[in-house]
């Protein structure tokens, strides 16, 4: 029993040593453009779901690479697959296709 009323809190920092990089590599084999994002934010700026849900393809990609999968899935659940982000991406990333691939690869984990 904790008699103190406080305890060690888990770190929210990113520790790259503990990130499982294998699944992201698997994603890159299908979606080589996944790593070409330059974080311009065009996707979230046009996203009709961003305003109320915080959805952002840029953030999803970043979180997946930084070992914050849970946060990425939470964002992705707001995607309506409208494809507006695909139209505006200056790097020509097929974001719609990318999101579907992410769902497929990370599917097992999500269902747990």
């Amino acid at each position: 029993m904790n008699i103190f009323g406080f305890r060690i809190s888990p770190s929210s920092a990113i520790n790259l040593d503990n990130v499982d990089k294998e699944r992201f590599r698997e994603l890159c084999r299908i979606e080589p453009d996944a790593v070409r994002c330059m974080a311009c934010g065009s996707c979230s700026a046009t996203c009709p779901a961003a305003g109320f849900s915080g959805m952002s393809v840029r953030k999803v990609l970043l979180y997946l690479q930084r070992g914050k999968e849970e946060e990425a899935f939470k964002l992705m659940s707001n995607c309506m697959l409208c494809g507006k982000c695909t139209m505006v991406c200056p790097r020509g990333i097929n974001t719609r296709h990318l999101i579907l691939s992410i769902c497929r690869i990370y599917d097992k984990e999500e269902k747990k």
Binding site: F4, G5, F6, R7, I8, S9, S11
Partner: peptide, 14 residues
């Protein structure tokens, strides 16, 4: 500030 005390402890733990 007692509400922040776990932050104090977590840093020492680190």
């Amino acid at each position: 500030v007692k509400a922040n005390r776990s932050y104090s402890l977590s840093n020492t733990y680190k």
